[in-house]
Structures are given as C-alpha cells and as structure tokens.
Design a binder for these strands. Sequence first.
DNA 1: AGCATAACCGGGGCGCTGCTCCGTATAGTG
DNA 2: CACTATACGGAGCAGCGCCCCGGTTATGCT
Lengths: 207, 207
Amino acid sequence: MSSQPPAPTPAKPPTAQRSDRELRADARRNRERVLRTAQQLFATDGLGVSLDEIARRAGVGPGTVHRHFPTKEALYLAVATDQLKQLVAEAEVLAAADDPAALFTLLSRMMANGAENVAVKSALVAAEFDLRTAAPDVAADLTRHVADLLDRAHAAGTVRDDLTVDEVMALVAGAFAAIRHAGAETSRKRSAHIAQIILDGLRPQPR
Amino acid sequence: MSSQPPAPTPAKPPTAQRSDRELRADARRNRERVLRTAQQLFATDGLGVSLDEIARRAGVGPGTVHRHFPTKEALYLAVATDQLKQLVAEAEVLAAADDPAALFTLLSRMMANGAENVAVKSALVAAEFDLRTAAPDVAADLTRHVADLLDRAHAAGTVRDDLTVDEVMALVAGAFAAIRHAGAETSRKRSAHIAQIILDGLRPQPR
DNA sequence: AGCATAACCGGGGCGCTGCTCCGTATAGTG
DNA sequence: CACTATACGGAGCAGCGCCCCGGTTATGCT
C-alpha cells in the first residue's frame, strides 16, 4: 500500500475522464439499445417492468443491463435525464425568440411529449425515484426556463396574475395524467384538446 | 355428486345472503380497522405498501387481513368502492338541487377529496387494478351523475361547448396529479387554487 | 492475421412479498 | 356459568425481482 510502484509512466495519457469514446463499439450500441427499450417499456407499462424483461426485449443478457446501469434507479434516471435534456434544448430555442406566447408553445410541447415521457413526469413528481436530487442541474434548467417565460408572459399580460412556477409545473404534470387516461388509447386530437383546456385556464380570467 | 343428501332442512332459516349482521362484533371492528388503515397507507405511500405492513399498523395479524380480503386487489377495490360511494352520495344531493353551478361544485369536491383519495383516482384510471370491471355499477353511477350535471351546464351555457364527459373525468384525474405535487406538502390553499385554474379552463372561452 | 482484453450471455443467490395453515383465545348462546 | 363455533395471531411456503459471477465470444490493436 505504502510503496508506490515505479509506474512505467507509459505513453498512455491520463485519459482524463472516461468519455463515451472509451466505450467499445458494441458496448455503446448495447447501451443505447437498453436505454431505448427501457424508455419505451417505462412509458407503456410503467415502472413496474422488471429489469429482466427489459433485457429480454432489448436482446441482451441481464448482466449487460447491470453493467451499464448498476441499479434500476440508475437506469431510470438515465432515461429521465436523457428526455429532459431534449426538452431543455427546445426551451432554449423558444427563449431566444422574443414571443410573448412562447410560454404556451413550450407548455404545449411538454404536454404533448409528456404522455409518453415518463421522465418529465417524474422530473417534477419524483414519484418513485428522486430525479431532482440525482440530476438537479438539468431539472433546475427546465424550471428556470419556464420561470423566465412565465415572467415575460406576466409582463405581457397573457397569463393570469396569480400563477407561480410551481403551479405551472404541477399543472403540466396533471396534464400528463389527464392525457394518459383519455388520450392513450384514443386519438391525439383529444389529447390536444385536453391540453388546450388546461392552457385556457392559465389565461387571465374575465372575472 | 348426483345424490343429493337428505338435507336436514334445519330450523336455520335460509339466511338469504351473509349480511354484515352475520359478522361477529370483533370481526366487524377489525375489518373496519384494516379498511381505514389501508385507505390511509394507500394514500400516503402508494400501492407499494405490503399487506404485512398494513396488518402491523392496523394492529392485527396477516391472517386476519387475508380472511376479510382474500387478495390484495380485493382490499384495494374495497377501499376504492367505499370512497366512491361517498362521492356518489354527494353527487345525488347536488343533482337534486336545481343549480346550474352544481357541476363545478361537484368537481371541486372531487378534486379536493381526490388528492388523498386513491380510489377515485383509479376509478377513472385503473392504474394497477381495474375498478370499472370489478365494480362497474358504482363507477358508472358517478359518471352518470357527472354527465347529467354536464348536460345542464351545457344548457345553461356555463361550460364550453366542446366538452365531453370523458374529458371532464380525465381532467379531474389530472387535477389529482397536479394537486398531489404542489399540494401534498404545502397548503390546502394552493390545492384549491390549482383546482380553480382547471375549472376556469372548463368555462366558455372568450375566443 | 493473431493476441490481449473488454464485453457479453445466462444461471443462481438473496431478500422480500403475498398468501396459507393450525393451535389458541374470545365472543355469543342456552 | 359452561359450551360451541368463530375469529385471531404468527410461523411457514412458494414465486419473483434485483443483483453478481462463471465461461465464452467478439473487438480493436499490432
């Protein structure tokens, strides 16, 4: 322990951190396969699906799943952050444009995705696993963007005065649930309608 | 099999069906205990709670739980139908009064209850167990009342034209989810606010 | 092309959960 | 007050899900 081996100090550079580059080709492909499969199964069958089932459907062995994602929570969080990043990217594009209706556009996108997007759902809810603890930066990014757009909408008077970011987030999560019921097995038209109803509730009310 | 025993035809009357009267006093009390405990634990910790945990908290043995409710699904459905019946009762009272705003009153009640009311949630969603199959009459009763009040509201012009019963039910379920996030650990005031936002979305929109 | 090695596959342990059985205690009845 | 039947409690069983460990296969480098 105390004796440090000569350490050949090989030509190998420190390699810094294990980037994705370090992964072998097939490993990287299998990792992606598992991730995709998990995302789909989580969305359709809920979090109850067993890891073995995911492995089977992905065409890999259970051990492979465990190597890439040491625990079920890790796999779930990987799926969640992956989906969240896409949403944050969209938010940034919308934030760039100077459109007072940008908030509604973003929320529409979130609601549309959310139904098949377990990640976002739990990004706010933390139903089983706590994503905000595991990847606080990504979740916070999304909230920040929403807050920003909400402020602008407030200034423009396109939303009701009494409306906080937390409430908006909660309502988006609620929209997921609502759409899941009515829209999962029916048409997308109905999903859009439900989203519209909730968005209408955000507007300034005639009183 | 083919030979029917003489059947002593005892003095015992047919007893018709085993009413609650047939239960012994302590049995009836324990059943109630389990039901209450299950309702509470389902609401706070979700459906993941083990039956042993419910039994322990209720102060009874696991065997007792199983005797009254042969399976976990049976216990859950008992809790659900119990809560649903209360809601149906409220609906009937509201239906009797001739108030065009009755729909909103009922929905408010549903949303307020729902957050701590796993039953209603799954009455519409059938998240894990299917309540509409197990107790179709009760669930249908509630839907019928809502549909009735919705019709009246349509006639009175207090709700938007494009609104179906299914959508209303879905939105109520969505409200549960929204309230659960924002309201579970915060104040009831916020819960009411979220419910109000959703209800405002149901009103005729200025267009 | 050959070799060192990283990654794969699949079976098995470990813990937990839902469910069942049987001796014991207690409520209800004459 | 004694007797019967009913309900209780806790130990035990089977099944499943998550996780780890062998031998084997495929990959990337020289």
